[in-house]
Design a protein around this nucleic acid. Sequence first.
DNA 1: GCTGAAAATTATGCATT
DNA 2: AATGCATAATTTTCAGC
Lengths: 162, 162
Amino acid sequence: MHTNFLDTLDYQIITELQKNARIASSEIARLLGANERTIRKRIDRLVDLGAVRLTAVVNPAYFNYATAADIFIEADPQLEEDIIARLLAMQEISYLALGQGTKEISIEARFKDNGALRDFIRAVLPSIPGIKVTGYALVPRILRNIDEWMPKQEDFGSFSNP
Amino acid sequence: MHTNFLDTLDYQIITELQKNARIASSEIARLLGANERTIRKRIDRLVDLGAVRLTAVVNPAYFNYATAADIFIEADPQLEEDIIARLLAMQEISYLALGQGTKEISIEARFKDNGALRDFIRAVLPSIPGIKVTGYALVPRILRNIDEWMPKQEDFGSFSNP
DNA sequence: GCTGAAAATTATGCATT
DNA sequence: AATGCATAATTTTCAGC
């Protein structure tokens, strides 16, 4: 649990960086009416604290990955480590999360066409020992992505704005 | 379908930007043995083409969002638009994807504690007319995130490296 | 599409409040 | 923790290859 000493300014900075991570600190300063040095120090702090990561998010559609599947898996606890390692080695898998007991695994995988996707669910996954696919959904249209997520404003300590 | 004219250099640039989106173009140039101007033009092109987005990804754990749930929903087709709008308005929802017929909806939602999570699944979601939760998994540990995904090397046209 | 050189802008280190 | 200032580095502009 962190003592949260971030404030509205940090929130606004993150909002700008979310739009464009390479925006000049001085431009953020201009936009927010703050000092350039302050902005730069805040950005460094946000990154050092691990509050945000400044990164490049690849657009799968541009590379002709036209479809995706969200899949629930049940893993044999005895083979669990091996299963996770094998899944993490797969380039198709864009997201992998473990459930409470780690028996449940939730993944997202990306494919160029429905053929590849179906093959993955019907052949590739079942070929891994100890795996059971308990449910899945083909999700060709993603409306909100994880990298767009923001905490609530109130998660940033104090506020000058109403 | 794009004619893919990106090459290894673009792949390497994306790899660097993924580690740090604010790295100086001249430093990438140094690392990759290329010209600074070339790097900057490539970055601009990658962004203009929509191949990558340079952004700030917030770390939910830092803001005390300790747990998440991946949820499958079935939506009444007649109320579909309203349902999607209501879901997209929720700050908790970090990911929302539609299935083939859009009847299936797949979401991820984030919470500060399991109580809030359970309340969301047991009370908040069911209170929306036309929604049925068909499956869910609590996923406190995310091992790979969508923003870390990369296409295969061969998705970048030509290659100078073996 | 890549690179060079000068001008403009931005980032950094140090010091002050 | 925020800012001013001097210096270093980077980005931009305009050009030629």
